[in-house]
Structures are given as structure tokens and as C-alpha cells.
Design a protein around this nucleic acid. Sequence first.
DNA 1: ATCCTCCCCTAC
DNA 2: TAAGGTAGGGGAGGAT
Length: 1198
Amino acid sequence: MAPLLSSGSLSSDYFDDDPDFIQALNHVVLPGDIEASPVRHNPIDEDIELQPPPSTQPGLKRPRSLPTEEDGSKFHSVLASVDANDGDSSYMSSYTYGASHFGDYGEYMSRKRAKLQLQNAEMDVKDGGSEARGRIFHGLQIYINGWTEPSVQDLRQLIIQHGGIFHAYLDKKSLVTHIITCSLTPAKIREFKHMKVVKPDWLTESVKAGTLLPWHDFIFRPGERVEESQGRNVAQKLLSDGFISQGNRRTEKKVSDEQPEDITLTIEHPNEPVAGPPCHSSSVSDQVHTDYAHPSIIHHRPASPEDAARIPDYAAHTSNPHAERAMADPAWRAAHTSVAPDFIEDYYKNSRLHHLSTWKSELKNLVAEAQERAENGSASAWSRSTEGTKTAVEKVMEENSGGAGLVGGSAEDDVSMRGAELVKKPPVKGKGKERAADAEERVIMHCDFDSFFVSAGLVNRPHLRGKPVVVCHSQGNTGGGSSTSEIASASYEARKFGIKGGMSLQQARKLCPTVLTIPYEFQRYKQFSLQFYTILMAHADDLQAVSVDEALIDVTSSVARIRTELSRSQEEQGISPDPAKDFAEAIRAQVKKVTGCEVSIGIAQNIMLARLASRRAKPAGSFHLRVADVPEFLAPLDIDDLHGFGYSARQKAQEKLGATSLGELTKKSKATLCEALGKGTGELLYKALRGIDDRKLESDKPRKSVSCDINYGIRFENNDQAESFIYQMGEEVSRRLCSIDMKGRSLTLKILKRDPSAPVEAPKFMGHGLCEAFNKQAPLIGPGGRATSEAKIIGEHAWRLLKSLSFDPKELRGIGIQIQKLEKGSGVVETESGQAVLPFKPVESPKGPGSAAAEPVNGKTDDQLHIHVQPPSQDDDIQIIEKPARGDTGVVDLPSFSQVDMSVFAALPDDVRKELETEYQRRSVTPAPGPNPARSRSPSLAAAERKGKFLVKGTNVKRITQQLAPRNRPILSPAKNRLFAKREGPSAVKVTDAELRKYKMDPEVFRMLPVDMQREQLAMARGPGASVFAERKILKPYTRRRTKSSSAPFRRPPAPRAVYFEPAFLKQQGKTKGEKLYFTETDDVQCVIEAWVDGFREHPPNQKDVDYFAKWLVQCVDGSRSADTGIEKAVAVAKWWLLLLRRHFAIWEHAPESDSDASCGAVTSEVVGRAWWKAFREVKGKMDVVARKRFGGSLSLK
DNA sequence: ATCCTCCCCTAC
DNA sequence: TAAGGTAGGGGAGGAT
């Protein structure tokens, strides 16, 4: 029964690993089955590859028996079998990712338990028996959770010495009388809610006292946690990722996996009764149940490093000697670990999992595009498929095949599917939709390559066909004997030896010394995949991309058509008609012809059943699961045969429902299922058990997150390397965001850190090994508090989060950055500095900030930066010129964008916000200079605006604009606050069209501008000294100049370009050295501050500037020297400063002030950011002192 | 109730 | 040498 033993797993599950399933299939004889697939009774099939990493890899799906410490003989036999299989103690012999090896973990756990018990006994004996000490802990059964003081080892000794029982594992909760801990994660708190959780003192004090003290006096309370390893919000799940998912998933190894066997079809699995739910077939099964009775150990991470460490030596302790040797060479490290300059690119280029993910998303896009095209009726080329003329399918196929055609670039390198094009079959004419929805059943096909990578590789290696072949990185033939390279795909011949995806080459070689390896050929996979999809698209009403080698198609209408065309002739020939199967075979033939590879196709009325059917179809076949056969087909299957149900669901089913076979589970009520698995999952299962699956094919779902993870080869020696790497990852994430024109508002940093118990070098070469995992999420704050895709900002956020964890960089093993809360990028320009620019901002000078910032290095940055904020020798250096206030006209309009309270703005619903952005953009930016700008504007809209209101998708904009206006006027009389007044003065500036035209301004455009802009424009046009000029006083956070012009250091930010003239002049102040600076206007101050902050983006501010600035602000607040509007001005200016700082250094605003010297004096953006915020707080503090004196409260800038 | 956040789980 | 990525579903439990 080699098929049972060595059949590979499916690409999606390990379905074909399951003898039950195979047997079930073989016992179900379905109509129309026989002639279709000659190999029907040889269940060796399925493809394999694409095994996920262990961190997410479910364990062996079907523990049949679990040896336990109570069963001595079993224990030994298990040892023997393990040893037989894993002849040496090297890592791969017992530590593999493959599904077939999860069985090892069950044995491991058993061995561990047994070993610990032995140790307990030994300790007992060594110490002369517990009686000698008095058995004060007699009757206690104690579990120690997490890190403790004293150590777990010491406590264990204490317990044992005094007659207690120490439980290394919590899988027998009912036995454990007390839990000892010094800290609990929230999850543990919940888990232990009803248990006696006590501090270690209880034990030590009791021993001291010589008697058992009342445990109540030592109850552990979460608040008083002894250990606080991370920041308050650290979600530390402390998973030892690979370890937990493997080591804690104790599952039994199937005997059949132990060694290769010859193929026989008749042998039944020793532990596998042919029929009946396996888990109830023996006491062994019950033992399994018992042993798995407490999911906590499986589903909850250890609560501390020691908790994981406590689970002692295992394969994971074995350091990889090759890695150690390599790592000892600095040059090698520099070239091959995460510190290598092009590590990320190089890594991704070779990562199969990365390619899988990328391809999937690209395929989804291609499908969505094709469908959109089809719906738009642009599928005209389709119908003309006359002879001699290539059909659209053929053409696209050619284009998609290989380096030629649409896919440009060097064929060898281009692994991306971008640029390819799929052509959708035209929509079914007439009542297609109706029919599908109606009585007629859907026909869904699940199409899946057999052993995709290997099959593709064998296409041009015909001489290797029929041989055991695997795809992996290692060149294999030489050093393969000790290679930890993972096998991505194995040929059926290789599977006969027990070789499976996810296994190391080393392990495979043990199973089959002659196994042949072939390299990855990503470009080819891409090509085949596109051809595959092209064919499917040609036949499908609808298509859902599942993977590079797998797709779901709805072929209802095609099958209906074939049925009418063929059924009669087939009936005449005495063939039972199955148009669906015929169609599937036709598709298979076409794919075979084009790619040379076999695909298998499962046919059923819904997605779930089609997936099951395709398992039955493999290899190289098709299988139609008919409605009438569904119950019989499903009954013998196991819950984890269902797509979406894996190890965890199976455990829950076993524990809470006592059954995992579908037949058994079908007897359970829906409520029961929901209780065990959760509401959604329970209902899904309930329906699945009855062959019902309402899910539609999904072909156009919007992206919800973008991420970038690297958990391989991460080896740093210092923080600088880690920081640099984080920023590089930020760039990668940014690239990905930009490539789909998205921005995000939330960032999650995912860290893997070496578990203290793990060797420095993981068993797997350059792998992450046993790790603790940490996630930290934070809002991603772009300029103005908005969503962003900027690499630098992402990098800063990520780095800040990582720093906050205070990990030793040497211990890092994995890093991930995930961006969520995505929004459409909406065309925001990115400057080369990475700084986002709001749409209405004038186009940036091509000169990046680097060039400006490169100039000043130390010391005299003032002059070099042309920021000349002179320290005042006298107070009267500062002169404030008040402007008369204006009356309120009551006109409602959008506030100038710069006036917008960004926190309100950011909080608006997306659509409204976007609408407003668009509006601001429209007002501020017009197309390139030309005779008639803004021609496209709707007159009615313009009119509405002139009236001061308009609607955004039915939203009352007036109300919103009121909210948008800054909210913090109330400090002083709101009426007097000119800085943030919504609109003061006339609704329009008095000026004739003639004059406007004289300035080359379009009167129509001019009139549409907000009044303040009108004034500004007019002022600029009229020139300096013009009366309107000085009236503008607007904070303009987003229309700023980025690059300093060396000749015009105080260049006013270019005006919004609603009119077409170059600013005739530039207001310049204080640029001459020694010239006194007069702050005649708030906006002058604002200009200065902006230039100041801008010029020092890369440097901390000079203290004297800070002092001077503080002095000026304090003076304003004080009011003794200026009118009470001084405070408004001060607030406005401070607020402006705040906005600027947030724009540049948002993420450091609330950064803890402490560990800033971590960078050893290097001027990093962090140092700069922190310095600026420190200055800000300092100044604000000074203002508040005065404000308190005068008003009895501090100033609010919010 | 209903949302949101923090995960885990699953798939390829 | 080897390249253990990534996105989405959903549950638990807290905030609102």
C-alpha cells in the first residue's frame, strides 16, 4: 500500500496523506467514475509542494495513537521507532517541517514526559527520598508557569523534595492543584481564572516554615507582576513559533511514514481501521483524547522564555555546525546574512513562498482586470475564432508564454506576472445569471496542477521522468547529505519513498539516497501558470485565483451548453453522459498540450465539494462528485479534510465533540458545533457536513493589508544593522504599497527573537529556529496625520517599535512589517525624499532635502542654512505689529486647508475626507499654465461655492467645515482670534477684472478662490507694499517649500497656483546678517519657524534659537508687552510649530525621553526628532508658566 | 449589540 | 550552504 504510505499530500492539504480518506475514496464507487480515470484505484497522486513554514504548519492531521508516559512499553517502542527513523541526532533527523514529521513531536513529548518523570524520581532518590524532608507538599500537584524567581528548576526540586508532584505540562489541568507563577499574560490570566495561582513564595516560605502555609496568603495577582519584560502594550505571545507549532503539537507518527515501503495496495494501515471513526476505535484513541484534552498548551504560548525553555532539549537545541562555521567568518556574515547590502532583494528572488504570495496576488489582479474588461464589453476579439486566425486565447497565451510578448525584460529574470493579460470569456448571453442562480446547480471545478514545480521541471528533462525527483535549492548531488534545504515539491516516484514537501533534503536522502534534485525555475512556473489561467479564463463564467497552480472556476453555462450538444450522441452510444467531466477532461487536455503538465480537476456543485473532488481526481484525472453521492462521500472523511479546517479545528472537535470524522460530526447539532468551534466556523461546518457551501467565487476583493516579512537569515551584530535593515524593509513595504497605489494608517511590527533555550545557530541553516514572537501595532502617521506609503515614515515607525522592545539585536531572528487600514493613494505625489506632498502643493523642486541638509554639518549651521534667528540683545528687538480685526461676514466656506484641524480632518469618514481633499486640491492646483485654466469646472459647482456651501455626497459640508476649523479657540475670546477665524472680511476682495487680467489672472478662477487666497494672490501681483499683502495670515502647513534656495533663503512658500504668474517678488526678511528681525506678521513668524524647522530637519535645533523663540512666545503670552491678541498669536505660532514637528517627526512626539543616547551620538532622524520635541516641550513649558500666571491654566494647542 | 484590536489559524 | 512569505477569515474579549 505504498500509495498510502508514500502518497504525497495535496497542494492544499495533506489530504492524500490520509489513509482514511484514500480508503474512503476507494470505497466510494461513483457513477461515471470508471472509465474516466484508470488510476482511480491508485491513490498515489496529489501534488505536494508549497509547504508552509512550521510556524503555520499544522501538525499531522490524524493522530491515531499517542504514546504516553503511562504506557511504558509504548514509550519504548516509540523510542525505537524514532531512532530507527532518525538514525542520527542531527537536526533534520528529528526537526523537520514536513507534515510527515509532526508525528515526531508527539513522540518527543512522550519521551519528554517520561524523561521528566524519571528525573523527578531520580531527584527524589538522590535526595534520600522526600520523607526525609517531611512531605509538606504531599498531595500537591504543581505546575509552574513562565519565568519565576527562584527558577523553575529550583522550584521543581523543592516541590519534589517535599513530596509534591511537579507537572512540567499543563495538559492535565484537572490534576494540577496549584499553579506557580510570577507573571501572567492576559491569555493566561483568563486561562487560569478558575485555578489556584500562587506566587513562588508560597513554596519557599512553606519550606522555611517547615509546614504548608495557606496558599491564599500567596495568591498571585496580575497587578503585582514580578516580571515586566516589555512595554505596557506589548502583545507578547512568546511563541516559540516553529517549536510550538511542532513541538507542542503532539501527534503521532504514522507507522507508514517511518520508512519507505514497497507499493502494495492491499495493506491496511495497522492503526487504521478501514471503516468507522478512527478516534473511537480503540483505547489508544481515547488516550489521544486524554492527552490532548487541554488545548491551552497547544493554543497558548508559553508565558515566558523559561516556559518555553522548560520544554527542554529537543532537536531545536542542536546548533547547525555548518552555520556556526560560516558565521564565524565575518566576511561570510557580511555577504550572506541580513546585513548584506542586497539581502532583501536576493532573498526574495529565491523564496518560493514569497513567489507564491506574489503570484497569487498578481493573478487575482489579472483576473479582476480581465473580468472588468469583459464586463465592459471589450471582448470583441473573442468571437472570431475562425480557422487560420488565432483566437484571443491563443494570442494571449503566446504573449504570456515566456519572455516574449507582453512580458518584457529578460526572460530569465522576470518572474512577475505584471504586464500579462488574461482574456475573459464573454459573459453568457441571455439568462445566464438567472440560470446560475436558479434551479440549475452550479458547476464548480477545482483545477490543480499535479506536483507543479516538479512537473514543470520535468517538461524539459524527460530523462528524469519516472524517477524520484524533488525541487529544492540545494544543488544536492554533493553536499545533499547534510543539506537543510527544504523540498518544495516531490515527484510521485519520490513520494513512494516517503519524501514529501517541507522535508529537508537531508531527510529525503535518508529515505531515498538516489533522489534527484532539480532547481527552482520560477520563470517557468509563472509562464505555465499564465497559460493555465488563460485556458481557464477561456472556459469559465467566473474564476477565483487560488494559487499559481490552482484555481476555481464556475463553468455552469459551458457545461449546460455541452450537455445539450452532446448528451444525445453519448446516450446513443450507451455512455452515461457527464458533460461536466467531459469538459474537465477537455480542459485537462488543453493544459497538458500547452504546458506539458498534468492538472487534475474536481467537479462539484460548490467550492468545498469541488476541492474534495479534486483530491479524488489526482493524479492526472478528473472526478465529478455528484449531489446524490455527497453524503456517502463525506461521511468517512475527517474534519481537517475540509478546506479551512486544520489541526486546530480538529483538536477542538476531538476535545469538545469527541469526534473528528464527518460522519460523526453530522450527528451533532449546529449549536454544539458552534460551541466547540465558534459561531461562524460552527455554522460553516454544519453546512459543509451536509454538502452545502454557499460561498461564491471571489475574484475582486480589495486588498486589506500589505506586509513584508523576513524570518530567514536574520543575524545582526548591533543596533545599527538592525535599524538599517528595518529601514530597508520599510522601503520594501513602501514599494509594495506604491505599486498598488495604496497608503496605510496602521503598522504592525512582527518580531521573532531567539528563544533563550534555542541555540544561537538554529538547526536549520540560517533559519530562525525556536523563537519567541512579538507583535506591536501602532498608528502609522503620515504627514498631517494622514495615511502614508512613505518608506522613511514606515521605517521610522517600525524602528521605533522595535527599539521600544529593547531587544538585543543579536537575538533577532525575524522581522515583519505589516501595513493595515489601507486607503487609495489618490495620486499624491511622492517627492524623492519620500515625503508625501498633498495634491495641491506646488510641484517640488527636484532638489531633495539631502542636498540642502548636507551643507550644514556642525556649528554654524545658522548662517549656512540662512536661518538667521538672532538672539535678541534687547527685548525690543521684537516688535509686534498688530493688525486691526475685521468684522465677521458670516460667510461660510471651507477653511483654508492650512487652517484645518488635522485631527478632525483625519477622523472624517473616508469618502467625505477624500471629497474635501479633492476640493482643496481643485482650489489650489490647476493644470499647467495655459490660456484657460480650470475650464473644466462646473459652473454650478462654482456658483454653489461662491454661495459658500456645497454638498459632498449628501453630506453637509458646512457642518464639517466648521468641525474642521481648529477647535481650540476658547483660550481667549474667540471673536478676536484672527488667526483661525473662519473667514473674516469681505467674501471677495475688491478688484476689477481688468486689474486681474493685467496680472494675467483669470478673473473667474480668482473669484472662486477663498478670500484669503484672493488676497494673497492679489498682494503678490501688486507687489510689496501693497495694502492687501500684509493681510494674509494663514498657517500653511502643507504648502511649504522643501528645498531651500540658496539665493532666497526666506522665500515665501509659493502661492497656490490658481493663477498663472510667477510670484513677482519674494518677501525677504532677516536674511542679511545682523539685520534685525521684525515679526510684523504672524505669518512672518510662521515663515521663519518653517524655515527653521525645515532647515534643521536633519539636525537638532540650536539651543539659542530655541531660547530666543521661547522668549518671544513667552512675551506674547505674557501680554505685558503686547495686546491680549498676543496670546492668540503665540498659540497660533506654537501650534504651527507643533504641526511642523508632527509633519517631520510625528513618531517621536510621544517617544519616551529616556534612551536617546542609544545611537552613540550619531545624528539619526530619531535623535533629531527627539531633540525637536524636547525643544518644543521646553518652550511650551515656558509658555505655560506664564499662561498659568496670567490665566490660571496652561495653553491648549489642540 | 457592535465595533475594534490582537492575535491564531489556514492556505498555497 | 539557503532563501521558514503573506493575505485573509475569524474568535476572544475589551471598548463603546
